[in-house]
């Protein structure tokens, strides 16, 4: 059978999600954001929530998320996405509200908003992309940066005595009574990406069932910030990131 005979609409098994726009993303080659955008778009499409989903975009690399997924979006001030999502979910209780934040947004400047929104048990989904670095501003140390990891502001590696320890914010959120589902996933292989999609779907279903705050942390890469090729970045992620941030469900009520 020739290639031309195989490439026919009736044989198609995977295509671009309908809800992704035609814009080419501004993300660097190999960035995990693109994969997570795809998973979010697929989940919203599969659940039929296209007209009922409101996303809250963060400040950081994902600041232009509203250009890439064709749903309603609000852009929040730095770190304040859970606070904005709180307002939207209370004013529009029939809609599903989710935030899409990086670690500089959620775990650094927005720590207070994140913890208190989760503690109040707001009916929102928080998608947290953890790549252990401030990617957009040029690879500075973030609270999630691993000990010994070289960044623009820790050129000799992060030191515990000088810079403190990496913060495991999902473990903290799992301790709060307001959260119903806290999980840590990754997208560095096809199998991990499929599992991550299942977790995102479950989080959206929790929001539909009004069960409380769902948090999906995605341990992701930053090839540009880590100064590695995408392939090497995923290997580094598998070796070091998943050791500090083990994958799996932290809480599932």
């Amino acid at each position: 059978m020739t290639i031309q005979e195989i490439i026919k609409p009736e044989n198609k098994v995977h295509s671009r999600p309908r809800l992704l726009t035609d814009n080419i993303t501004h993300y660097c080659p190999g960035c995990g954001h693109g994969v997570v955008h795809k998973l979010v778009a697929e989940v919203i499409d599969e659940l039929g929530l296209e007209d009922r989903t409101i996303g809250v975009a963060p400040v950081g690399c994902a600041v232009f998320a509203y250009n890439y997924i064709d749903i309603d979006w609000v852009e929040a001030a730095h770190g304040r996405a859970p606070a904005v999502a709180t307002a939207i979910s209370r004013l529009e209780p029939e809609n599903v509200v989710f935030t899409y934040q990086g670690d500089g947004d959620l775990a650094a400047i927005g720590t207070a908003e994140t913890i208190h929104a989760a503690n109040r048990g707001e009916n929102i989904v928080i998608i947290f992309i953890n790549n252990a670095i401030y990617g957009m501003t040029g690879g500075q140390m973030a609270p999630t940066t691993l000990l010994g990891q070289q960044t623009a502001t820790t050129p000799y590696g992060r030191r515990a005595d000088l810079n403190g320890y990496p913060i495991k914010i999902s473990d903290m959120l799992a301790q709060l009574d307001g959260t119903c589902y806290v999980t840590r996933q990754a997208v560095f292989t096809a199998a991990a990406a499929r599992k991550c999609k299942g977790a995102i779907k479950k989080a959206f279903q929790n929001a539909l069932a009004k069960k409380g705050t769902s948090v999906v942390e995605v341990v992701s890469n930053c090839p540009s910030g880590w100064k590695l090729t995408p392939e090497k970045a995923n290997e580094w992620l598998k070796e070091h990131m998943t050791a500090k941030y083990p994958l799996g469900d932290l809480k599932d009520l």
Binding site: M1, E5, I6, I7, K8, N11, K12, V13, H14, S15, R16, P17, L20, I24, T25, Y27, P29, G30, C31, G32, H33, G34, V35, K38, V187, F188, T189, A190, A193, R194
Partner: peptide, 19 residues
């Protein structure tokens, strides 16, 4: 046609066909 390439593609530029 296992679609692993399309699943990990961050730019969703791969379409997969299988017979």
């Amino acid at each position: 046609g296992c679609a692993q390439c399309a699943t990990v593609c961050p730019d969703d530029c791969i379409e997969v066909y299988r017979v």
